[in-house]
């Protein structure tokens, strides 16, 4: 175990494996599977009727609001991670604790604001 890079070499090996394995499987399938041509086979499924238009449509904004809320709080969680490693045994427990709770407290205001504004309530 020398250095951080060493612990990521197996990750690189697995990444290469993940990159070649699915295309390889699909190549084998291509050799084994039968093929037939029929125009109707290549339409998208829409409960049996002929599909109208494409699926590239404007969509409910609801989903994007959650995404915006997610970005804020996920970044908050990321900032919590380094704090866990210095929580004990580094002599800065109390100062780190106060700082981190101040940080969470400020973000809680954002959370309460979102809740009060109704951004976390699903529009029927």
């Amino acid at each position: 175990m020398s250095g951080i890079i060493d612990s990521y070499i197996p990750v690189a090996i697995f990444l290469v494996m993940a990159l070649i394995m699915p295309p390889m499987t699909m190549f084998i399938v291509k050799q084994l599977s039968p093929r037939s041509k029929a125009a109707n086979k290549y339409t998208t499924y829409e409960s049996g009727s002929v599909p109208t238009g494409t699926a590239r449509i404007q969509f409910n904004v609801e989903y994007y609001l959650y995404a915006i809320a997610f970005v804020i709080f996920d970044v908050e969680v990321l900032f919590l991670y380094p704090w866990t490693t210095v929580f004990k045994g580094h002599g800065i427990t109390s100062i780190a604790l106060i700082e981190m709770f101040a940080f969470i407290f400020i973000l809680l205001f954002g959370y309460i604001y979102l809740w009060k504004k109704g951004a976390l309530t699903w529009v029927k």
Binding site: M26, V29, K30, L32, S33, S36, K41, Y42, T43
Partner: peptide, 10 residues
């Protein structure tokens, strides 16, 4: 493994 690999045209 022996099923046809189908992809919709669009």
């Amino acid at each position: 493994f022996t099923k046809e690999d189908l992809r919709p045209l669009n």
